[in-house]
Design a protein around this nucleic acid. Sequence first.
DNA 1: ATTTATTTTTAGGATTGCCTAATATATTTT
DNA 2: AAAATATATTAGGCAATCCTAAAAATAAAT
Lengths: 220, 220
Amino acid sequence: MELTVSEENYLKAIYHLSEGGKKSVSTNDIAAEMKNKPASVSDMLRKLGEKEVIEYRKYYGLQITETGKRYALQTIRKHRLWEVFLVEKLNFAWDEVHEVAEQLEHIHSPLLIQRLDAYLNYPKFDPHGDPIPDEFGDVRSRPRVQLNEMEVNQTGQIVAVEDSTPAFLRYLDKVGAYIGARIKILDKVEFDGSVEILVDQKKTIFMSKDVACNILVIQS
Amino acid sequence: MELTVSEENYLKAIYHLSEGGKKSVSTNDIAAEMKNKPASVSDMLRKLGEKEVIEYRKYYGLQITETGKRYALQTIRKHRLWEVFLVEKLNFAWDEVHEVAEQLEHIHSPLLIQRLDAYLNYPKFDPHGDPIPDEFGDVRSRPRVQLNEMEVNQTGQIVAVEDSTPAFLRYLDKVGAYIGARIKILDKVEFDGSVEILVDQKKTIFMSKDVACNILVIQS
DNA sequence: ATTTATTTTTAGGATTGCCTAATATATTTT
DNA sequence: AAAATATATTAGGCAATCCTAAAAATAAAT
């Protein structure tokens, strides 16, 4: 079955919202994500339901099906492979690639993606550190490491914290070490294990080992 | 002004038909080229006329404008650059690239094309030997050479003949050396200047120097 | 529990791009 | 030049995808 560009985009949005940890995905959420109106979303949900890539009961909610996940992951795979191409081969900056990859991800050609994958040497992560699903839709997440285990000059993205007490989160917020931040280890003090890190290529912050070992990072 | 994918395709078809040496381009010609119905073409011609990429007088005919040419050449440029990419970087065979390039040519991103061009080392010809317009739409055609001037292992495409007497054309037809054929020089006899060539990667033919010097080839 | 507010869906409309069938124009034949 | 043929255009319809406005369902508040 062939999905239209629009259907692919909706399905991708639904997949991301589903994985985003939220219990259920609302029509309004999707509308916000897709930057169009809830009425249009209702239309599309009915269609996606008919195509059985989601299970949809109106006024109640929806769930992405296994088939739907496969389609979504296929699109995500293409998006991320193209991002790698743009950054590694065409020297795009990692924040310039999204819009173009949004277009490239809809090119239909299994052979193209297979060859592109090989050409890029089967990358497992895109320039943002997000994992690239394989051709069967399997995602092997990179193991998350504690920030204090990283070495000087290594880079990564903060993905979670091990201590989620309000006090700790407030502290992180204050220093600017939010979930999703891209970081680089600038210096590490052997004596007490404290580290100096660069956040989003702008802000430098210091933190003790006690703090660092509660921050989980995916390296890139 | 942004053209839709469909408009870009029509304009490309119109450009090709215009350049194809025909005095005027008919609605039916376009319909045949685009594989849809004349009625749809009329619709589109009106729209392209309003956008001033063609000059259109109904029941009379049409002419592509300078603006229209620029758009068409831009699309052709993208198509051919992607073909080079597919063949040179992703190891596509030269006859597998068309369908994918048809899709890729509609990606909108000046930066992407600029970078791709640089990455491919500013190629001047696509894998079929067709010239790639530069970013201003200028096409520099490769000089045509007589077949007998080519060396062993060089490849090219037959584009014209210098002797167009019926006898000569009948002969070419018989041996299978038609206009558009892709050829490769397999062997060259120094003594009499006769050559052995491979046509379309299938058929081997021999020809005397007298014949070869009347065949014009664009090298690739 | 009834009212109020929010969320979601339906109804109906616009645009793009295609179609078929009918009509209009141009060309060719006699 | 009139009739026959070929070509081109319009009229009206259909599907996709968006929209606004109105209606329906659900959730929240008193």
